[in-house]
Design a binder for these strands. Structure first.
Length: 505
RNA sequence: GCUCGUAUAGUGUAGUGGCCCAUCAUAAAGGACUCUCAUUCCUUUGACCCGGGUUCAAAUCCCGGUACGAGCACCA
């Protein structure tokens, strides 16, 4: 082999040159059967809480396809469970706002499932009339045995008119939750047990568990299950492509069977795998809700929580989230990603516009000794002088230094002077930079006030007090604290570290 | 248990039989620039789960194994 190579090197070196590599695919993979301008996509969260980090994937991917194909993006609230995962009234509005923030535009259409029960009823009736659905009065346990044994349950052979009568009974409240359910007829010997005569609508006690939307409240007792509601709604809205988690694969199969009964064409479907974040592990809206109610967290935008609002409050940009999710793309692999990747995107999104600011943690006062100018000018941003200058005038010779820095004897006060430190005195040895002393950040007492820096570390919120440079940045501005990192100015004037760090276990 | 799905550097990802001694990002290490431990730039390290088969040719196709994940709810 080596011999051959040496021959080639002499005789035909061009054969050894690396050929140019295939261009790397840009953006998301093409959708199958997609026509420009005719793609309809939807993202359907349960409004049982505000959006979390994981939801951002659905929003970003669907919205990106919408842009690629000049299509329609529907935000749909699948709020058909009032007991196990009850919707939260405030979440409806918040989710629309968060989706708009993340994608940079409002959804083309907002659909609320609980507004559309009549449509689902109508299709349930069609199903019963045409004999591909039936009202089943078996208990869940009894049916489970039929499912396992591949045997028909006694209700399966009822005539359409019997089914319709029973259905009217369901609507009138003749049955309690669990006593009757509408099933879609498939085959009881299908290979996948999950698909066998799956349930489409059930009864919920909305007196005990009213729907939180006042216009719905306790009006209805018969509610569709996700597989049915989603399938019918996708058809009604003309959805052409569905991108969703692979946990819903069986749902697709169930729904395809239903579509065949109705004679509809099922949308093209793409799946992604499960995503975990190293720092958070798994997370669920229901669990977060419990923890908040138990007082373990301080509301939905507690910085320790992986909600979109918490991320936003910490200064994570919509652009960074978008880049992050697009980079992961759509694979069915279950993955675990570090937050560092998100932070890298966020740094890129934020750095150019982040004014520099000095924050001296655990500040220690020093007296300045020696000749020096009466003011110092430091740039707002070292790479963009157009952003202006910060001017610090000395009204007294007092400066603040960080506790961790004062162990060093000789330091360079950034942009100012070389000093020697001892006994809370900082003696100026030179204004020009003569030595390679470590450069530290600092503040003149006349330009600093008490400040608080908030940082989440190891799932704890830490409040670090110190001296903060005077500034006029509005709440919401992302600044860079010199030698510390990016932080967001909060409403109360404190600063929140954007990119949390975790100690190695 | 049954059903379905997935396996490429530490983490993600590109790759659809020959442009592959495998792409890009991120992380790590080193360096340049810099009056920040920032930004920017450069360099280096580092991977096709295992075993068979098909083929002139396999990361790519087929079979088997293994690992991981999901579904088997009158949740979404």
């Amino acid at each position: 082999m080596d011999h051959l190579r040496s021959i080639l090197e002499n005789e035909a070196p061009h054969l050894l040159e690396k050929r140019s590599t295939k261009p790397r695919k840009e953006g998301l993979t093409e959708l199958t059967n997609a026509t420009q301008g005719e793609v309809v996509l939807r993202f359907a969260p349960n409004p049982n809480g505000p959006l979390s980090f994981g939801h951002a994937r659905g929003l970003v991917i669907n919205n990106t396809y919408r842009e690629m194909y000049d299509g329609v993006f529907i935000l749909r609230f699948d709020d058909t469970d009032t007991k196990v995962k009850p919707p939260m009234l405030e979440a409806y509005e918040q989710i629309v706002e968060e989706a708009t923030w993340l994608t940079g535009r409002a959804p083309d259409r907002v659909v609320i499932a609980s507004d559309r029960l009549e449509h689902y009823y109508k299709h349930a009736e069609q199903m019963l009339e045409n004999g591909f659905g039936y009202v089943c009065r078996c208990s869940a346990d009894a049916f489970r045995e039929h499912r396992q044994a591949k045997t028909n349950c006694p209700c399966r052979d009822q005539s359409p008119s019997d089914n319709l009568t029973l259905w009217k009974g369901m609507l009138k409240g003749a049955y309690k939750p669990g006593d009757a359910v509408v099933r879609v007829k498939t085959e009881m010997d299908l290979k996948n047990p999950a698909l066998r005569d799956w349930p489409a609508l059930r009864i919920q006690d909305t007196k005990a568990h009213p729907h939180p939307r006042p216009e719905v409240g306790s009006t209805y007792d018969v509610w569709p299950l996700l597989d049915f509601q989603s399938a019918v709604e996708d058809h009604l809205q003309g959805v052409t492509h569905i991108v969703r988690g692979k946990d819903l694969m069986d749902s697709t199969r169930k729904q395809t069977l239903l579509y065949e009964h109705f004679g509809w064409k099922y949308p093209e479907t793409l799946y992604w795998g499960r995503v975990k974040v190293h720092e958070w592990g798994g997370f669920s809206t229901s669990q977060m809700r419990k923890d908040i109610e138990a007082g373990r967290y301080d509301g939905w935008n507690d910085p320790r929580l992986p909600t979109l609002s918490a991320l936003k409050d910490r200064g994570i940009q919509a652009k960074a989230l978008e880049q992050f999710w697009l980079e992961l793309g759509i694979t069915q692999k279950d993955i675990s990603v570090p937050l560092a990747t998100l932070y890298a995107h966020n740094t890129k999104a934020v750095d150019d516009d982040a004014p520099r600011l000095s924050f001296v943690r655990n500040a220690v006062a020093f007296k300045l000794e020696g000749e020096h100018p009466t003011e110092v000018k430091v740039p707002v941003h070292p790479n963009h002088q157009t952003m202006g200058w910060r001017t610090w005038k000395f009204s007294e010779n007092a400066v603040w230094l960080e506790a961790d820095d004062i162990e060093k004897m000789d330091v360079r006060l950034k942009e100012f002077a070389d000093v020697e430190l001892h006994d809370n005195e900082a003696r100026i040895t030179s204004i020009e930079r003569h030595h390679s002393h470590p450069v530290i950040h600092w503040l003149p007492a006349s330009h600093a006030s008490e400040g608080i820096l908030l940082e989440t570390k190891n799932n704890q919120i830490q409040r670090i007090s110190g001296q903060l440079e005077h500034h006029t940045h509005e709440a919401g501005t992302i600044v860079q604290l010199e030698r510390i990192g990016y932080a967001r100015v909060m409403d109360d004037g404190s600063l929140m570290v954007c990119h949390e760090t975790t100690d190695e276990p």
